[in-house]
Structure formats: C-alpha cells, structure tokens
C-alpha cells in the first residue's frame, strides 16, 4: 500500500517536472510546477516530516509560485512570445542532461553499504522537536537567515525601482 503510494507520487512528480520543461506556455509551466511541489509535499508526509510538508506547501505553492505567476502576468508572456531556440542547441542540451542522469543513476544505484538507524523515532518531524533544535543548536544560522531576508528585501526594492536615468 505505502509502496504503491510512493510509486504514484514519484510518477506524478517526474511526469509534471517533465511537463514544466517541455510546455510552450509559461503559465502552464507554472501550473505544472505547482503540481510537482504538491507531490513532493506528499513525499515529505510519507517520510514522517509533517511540519516540513506544511512549510513546503506554504512557501512554494503559496509564495514563490504566486510571485512567478505575478511576474508572468506582468510581462504578458504566452506561447506566442516564447523565444525560439535552434533545434541543435535543444538536442545538445537534452543529450547532456540525459548523460548526467545516466551517470548519476549508474553511480548512485551501487550504494548498498549504508545502514539505517535502528531505533525509529516518528516524532522528529513534528514542530515541537524541530523548533527546539532550531532555537538551540541552530540558533545562529537562524538569525543569519533573517539578515539574508532583509538584504534580499532591500535588494529587490532597489532593483525593481524605476531608474530615472535610463528612461
């Protein structure tokens, strides 16, 4: 039962990831990417990482995808304005990516010596446990992340402001 859920979620995430790359219309790409993110959230639930699944849906499907859709609507992109690339470049890119996939799978499928943890704690993905670790052991990186957000916010405002000298 759980194994078939895993296979279904894996199929859905790979299928929609391929659709993101091949679809001509950028709006369709964003919608397929949202479905990919939901299937990855399902994977997190299977892995007993409940809080991670929740945060993943809120951050990716809620914030990042809205930002993408907003920019696509703002720039009025559709299939007609899609830039065309020579088929030789597309072919070369597909061959290079496929070769990377072959090499990665060939190398990584040979791993069999790692041992899983013996005692299983299904509580590590809950917010109580993660919050305790985040605010004790990883307190400094947590605060540095807030500085990163401040810098990103200021940078975005400065970049998006109209430059009076160019226009």
């Amino acid at each position: 039962m759980i194994a078939s859920v895993f296979y279904f979620l894996s199929f859905v995430s790979i299928f929609f990831a391929v659709m993101v790359v091949v679809s001509k219309n950028p709006v369709h790409s964003v919608l397929y990417l949202i479905l990919t993110f939901f299937s990855i959230a399902g994977h997190y639930l299977l892995l007993n990482a409940q809080f991670l699944a929740l945060v993943h849906i809120v951050v990716y499907a809620g914030a990042i995808m809205v930002l993408f859709l907003f920019v696509i609507m703002l720039l009025n992109l559709n299939a007609a304005t899609e830039p065309v690339k020579s088929s030789l470049m597309k072919f070369a890119g597909a061959i290079a990516g496929g070769s990377l996939m072959l090499v990665l799978i060939a190398v990584l499928s040979k791993i069999n010596s790692i041992q899983p943890a013996h005692e299983v704690n299904t509580q590590i993905g809950l917010i109580k446990n993660l919050g305790k670790i985040l605010f004790t052991e990883y307190n400094l990186p947590f605060e540095v992340a807030s500085i990163l957000f401040l810098v990103a916010m200021i940078g975005t405002v400065i970049l998006a402001k109209k430059n009076p000298h160019t226009s």
Partner: peptide, 17 residues
C-alpha cells in the same frame, strides 16, 4: 528530478522557465 532540472536549464531560453 535533478537531471530534468539540468535539461530544463540547458534546453530552454526563457529566463523564467
């Protein structure tokens, strides 16, 4: 999934994709 992402970067020319 990582290789699909690499293929997307290499084959598309739309910056948002």
């Amino acid at each position: 999934l990582f290789s699909i992402g690499v293929m997307g970067v290499l084959t598309r020319s739309n910056a948002i994709i």
